[in-house]
């Protein structure tokens, strides 16, 4: 009996967050007629796109029993670099050299920096055995400081229509940020469910010692995962910058908390090895719908924070109750 119960555990967990989302949507539809419209739906999706990108990377890290607190700062630094490269290029006065960047080149530059910063997180975690919480907390401060240095504390604005299209454009009726987030999610789902790397991620989070003894190169997997989380945060940075048509030095502050909330509400265990990218997507949309619904219902922003915290707590309690039943 206990076996058949545990077989059903995974799909049940997947549907838990989907079910919560559906209930939330039904309730909100009854409470306000502004909620259940195509426009508002796309609006919510556009708003959650950035968090989905970040939280997807966060999920990969959390599945290895790690955490990445630096994503908000990495987002800001990479957004600023992308904007800076695109607008001003790189100049090396000493060598009388100037390098200009196309939009794609500038974005790739931002993504490259994001993966490097993430890789460095993974490096400190694996090489010096620094707890991920501390290693990425340090990066949170470092990357924010570097953002201030690079932007000299001023926004980099007026990036032009092409750049703004990434934030505001619509393709086939769907906002561009939603397309980008969907692509990130599909890649992450593919990695976690269809590849060797995905299995390694789950094995490391489930039992790192056993994974090591199975011949898995723990360091390589973790470096890859942190680098991917950095790249996904950087992509979030590109979207945020495009939406505001400006790279703000203080962009992304406390975004790591929304990302972790999405991961947790989506049913991924912070102790690693259990959870899914789909769950996180559900979690991010739940947070988005909740924010949106509370705004539509004219609930004070202060209460919104209280409610959001309550939902996170509820999600974890339900999760723990499920674990105890096992």
């Amino acid at each position: 009996m206990s076996q058949s119960l545990s077989i059903q555990q995974f799909p049940l967990k997947k549907f838990q967050s989907l079910l919560a989302l559906l209930i939330l949507c039904v309730v909100l539809s009854f409470m306000t007629d502004k909620f259940f419209t195509a426009d508002n739906g796309l609006n919510v999706l556009r708003q959650v796109a950035v968090n989905v990108c970040i939280a997807t990377g966060m999920t990969l890290v959390v599945l290895t029993a790690g955490i990445d607190l630096s994503v908000g700062s990495v987002l800001a630094l990479c957004g600023a670099l992308t904007a800076g490269l695109f607008k001003n290029g790189l100049s090396f006065p000493a060598n009388d050299l100037f390098v200009g960047f196309t939009l794609l080149g500038a974005i790739l530059g931002g993504l490259l920096l994001g993966s490097l910063l993430g890789w460095f997180n993974g490096f400190t975690v694996t090489k010096f055995n620094v707890p991920p919480f501390v290693a990425t907390l340090a990066m949170l401060t470092i990357a924010r400081g570097l953002t201030m240095l690079y932007t000299k504390g001023h926004p980099i604005s007026n990036l032009g229509a092409d750049f703004a299209f990434i934030g505001a454009g619509i393709v086939f009726g769907i906002p561009v940020p939603v397309w980008i987030a969907a692509m990130v999610v599909l890649i992450a789902v593919f990695i976690t469910q269809k590849t060797k790397l995905g299995r390694y991620i789950y094995a490391i989070g489930g039992n790192e010692q056993a994974a090591k003894l199975s011949g898995i190169n723990i360091r390589k997997v973790k470096l890859t995962v942190y680098a991917m989380a950095g790249a996904m945060a950087a992509l979030g940075g590109v979207i945020v910058t495009a939406r505001l048509d400006s790279a703000q030095p203080n962009a992304g502050i406390s975004y790591e908390l929304d990302a972790i909330a999405a991961v947790v509400i989506g049913g991924t265990s912070l102790s690693g090895g259990k959870g899914s990218v789909w769950g996180t997507v559900m979690g991010a949309i739940i947070i988005g719908v909740l924010n949106n619904g509370l705004v539509l219902l004219n609930v004070s922003p202060f209460w919104q924070q209280v409610v959001k915290g309550g939902v996170i707590l509820l999600a974890v309690v339900i999760d723990k109750m499920g674990e105890n039943r096992e």
Partner: peptide
Amino acid sequence: LHGLVLGQTIKSNISITILK
């Protein structure tokens, strides 16, 4: 402690050494 990932399926535990 060292042999199995207890929270995962029999299948993933057996195949982990030869995923390549």
